[in-house]
Write a protein that binds this DNA or RNA. Structure first.
Lengths: 242, 242
DNA sequence: CGGAATATTGACGGCTGTCAAACCTCGTGG
DNA sequence: CCACGAGGTTTGACAGCCGTCAATATTCCG
């Protein structure tokens, strides 16, 4: 099961459920000590803390052990675009493994209390080069992430509000489900409507109307911090077609 | 001056104006032979040919010597998103240097007749690793391209039609100008309104109305294959603010 | 308990898509 | 040299999605 909000990582990486599904999965299974010795610290942050800043040099990368976060960029006029939501187990700023000398292409902010396992970028580049399997694994993850982000950005210009919202819900449920974060048909969802608006290129008012429509049509149920999907088939259909 | 539509590259890379401004600039200046021996062929294609296919393995990368092309992806419903326009001198599928084992993340199609200098991906990876300066140059170019694409995709959700069109025109004029492709305030522009629509997430009808508005306001002039910018200040202002 | 953050609802208007038709340009074949 | 057809551009009428502005309700948290 995914680590819940505020939970602390185990002392030894060998005992870490999250790590075995993380970017360094191949290594941690074969030799957890290799990860453990590279973990520089465990960082516990409260909600609403920006711990990676767009444009600044990147010297550390992270694994989000527990809690939620999100990556974002600012427009010149101050609005922000949320690029992706980061769930427990997700790597943070993985791109820097491929482009170690480039400044951060986005900022990252905690949405809830989070625990982060911190690694020096230098160490992890060394690890990546150590074995071909691990290198392929990291490079593959970086590529998939870039691909998914680019595809989502594409969608913004072409889908209706209800399609965008549905797509995001389907994606989040899938990603949470892969790591045991879904109970029955509901899951923890600490996302405000303002965050949805910033992620989907909508206003909070229209996000609210769209969620309301999905609720009135019996497709979802939700309250603060909780999302429940009542009709997966229809939600997926809307996500694909609208 | 940039190579014009249909022009053929010189026999020797040492004589190539385009190459000196291309991704392998540092090497070609110091030692043009290093590039020349890696050029596998010169490929001449007519307009409307797709020469790189999304999802297929990448074994060759290109420099677009003359003519225009564009990169794109398809949505499940058949619509397409143009990711970027490729101008004379631009590298094609540069990302593969960073992710050599990944399939192509997009397709590329010629807009006019084009001449392409073709290199084996393997050879260029070798070149990149040969010197630190060249490696940094290539990595930097790949990163900048990814950054620009991501930023443009972001914009699509947040800017009005006239803002998007203006931004694209400003960008194209800038990129063409950097390589001598602008005469006075006008330039060759072999882009159909349908392509603009696919790049900007609009319909052709609305692209037409938007261009018409810019023309009636005295900001641009255009006809088939030619674009002229009459009022740079206002165009830039619209591109930035709307 | 009080204030801040978040969610909800209503009224209104504009931007943009859709559908359709006409027009124009260019290359091609007769 | 003209006729023709395909591709591309332009214009009109209309509808609907979504933003804006504003007010109110609700929940959270100190």
């Amino acid at each position: 099961m995914a680590a819940s909000d505020g939970a602390k990582p185990p002392l030894l990486c060998a005992d870490c459920f999250v790590g075995q599904h993380a970017l360094y999965g191949p290594t941690i299974k074969a030799s957890p000590h290799e990860i453990y010795i590279r973990r520089r610290q465990i960082l516990n942050l409260s909600a609403q803390k920006t711990f990676l800043h767009e444009g600044e040099p990147v010297t550390q990368i992270f694994t989000l052990y527990s809690g939620w976060a999100f990556s974002f960029r600012h427009f010149t006029d101050g609005r922000r675009q949320i690029l992706s939501f980061l769930l427990p187990g997700d790597p943070v700023i993985l791109e820097s493994l491929s482009f170690p000398h480039r400044p951060a292409p986005y900022s990252v902010k905690s949405l809830t209390n989070v625990s982060l396992c911190v690694f020096a970028l230098r160490d992890m580049i060394g690890l990546a080069k150590a074995t071909e399997l691990q290198n392929e694994n990291l490079s593959s993850a970086a590529w998939k992430h870039a691909d998914a982000t680019s595809r989502r950005m594409m969608d913004l210009g072409h889908r209706s509000a209800i399609g965008r919202v549905s797509q995001l819900l389907v994606e989040i449920e899938r990603r949470l489900g892969e790591r045991g974060g879904v109970q029955g048909n509901q899951f923890y969802f600490p996302v405000r409507q303002e965050h949805l608006a910033d992620a989907l290129g909508l206003t909070t008012v229209y996000v609210n109307r769209t969620l309301d429509r999905l609720r009135k049509d019996g497709i979802i149920e939700f309250e603060r911090d909780r999302m429940q999907i009542m009709d997966h088939v229809t939600l997926r259909k809307i996500a694909d077609e609208e």
